[in-house]
């Protein structure tokens, strides 16, 4: 709260005159009476990798859900590629290029791995179904091995890969990931982040929500820190890593 480095609502300092990419301005979200996200502003330029950090209950998931059209914000403006998203249903946002790998993964447990992937494909958008499938299998060879297995029987790490693969099937241009490393062994987390790095190198923009900041900040160019629904810090990753408050709050974990 008493943070000198407070972000300004519109402070996308020096970045491209971004009509492109994701822009959030003055976002406010409530559950009933509770204001959960308060005056949040952030941007993700095309191809950029950005981390959104913060403790439990800070409002990270809520922010992503508002961007994806799952809950309506009370106030604020969200644009993607210059289009205002207000009131737009989720399936149209997906068609615009937004992808979300949600908290809890939200797979279809009684369907096979391949069926889960197929459902992620949006007919008429991006490469054909077979090509998208082949691409996801190249990225996650393990999923090809398990293509006939029911998603509900996968291990945690495999489920996370499937959730990411399923989101990639829609050929997103910005992929939002909600705590992708949650509950995974360190070795698997490394593997996961290698894949994310690869995706970033291909030009896919990423907005990564994490509580444990090491990997996220190593990958991201910039980061935001959310606390009690407000952005209390933001800046280049290197700078955030050095920041005393962040050191104290998270890196010790």
């Amino acid at each position: 709260m008493r943070e000198p480095h407070r972000s300004e609502p519109h402070g996308a300092r020096g970045r491209a005159p971004a009509a492109r990419g994701l822009k959030i301005r003055g976002l406010q979200v409530r559950y009933g009476e509770f204001v959960v996200v308060q005056d949040v502003s952030l941007t993700v330029a095309p191809g950029e990798i950005v981390a959104l950090l913060g403790p439990n209950g800070a409002g990270k998931t809520t922010t992503l859900r508002a961007v994806h059209g799952i809950i309506p914000p009370v106030d604020g403006e969200i644009t993607y590629e210059g289009r205002a998203l207000h009131g737009m249903p989720t399936h149209e946002r997906v068609a615009l290029g937004l992808g979300l790998v949600p908290e809890g993964r939200e797979l279809f447990p009684g369907m096979t791995v391949e069926e889960n992937l197929e459902l992620g494909h949006v007919p008429g958008r991006g490469p054909a179904l077979a090509d998208s499938l082949a691409d996801v299998y190249r990225l996650f060879p393990l999923l090809r091995e398990r293509r006939r297995q029911q998603a509900g029987t996968l291990s945690g790490g495999e489920q996370q890969m499937l959730a990411i693969g399923r989101a990639l099937m829609a050929a997103p241009t910005l992929l939002m990931l909600d705590e992708p490393s949650l509950g995974l062994a360190p070795r698997i987390v490394d593997l996961l982040y290698d894949t994310l790095r690869l995706l970033g190198e291909r030009g896919l923009a990423l907005l990564i929500v994490e509580q444990y900041v090491h990997e996220a900040l190593a990958l991201a160019a910039r980061g935001y820190v959310l606390e009690s629904g407000r952005i209390v810090l933001h800046g280049p990753s290197a700078q955030l890593r050095e920041h005393p408050n962040l050191q104290q709050t998270y890196l010790s974990v």
């Binding site: 989720t90 399936h91 939200e106 279809f108």
Partner: peptide, 15 residues
């Protein structure tokens, strides 16, 4: 089937 199994998941992926 997807909607029946997991409505939240179906919404997220743009069904």
């Amino acid at each position: 089937r997807a909607v029946a199994q997991n409505l939240a998941g179906a919404l997220v992926i743009g069904l």
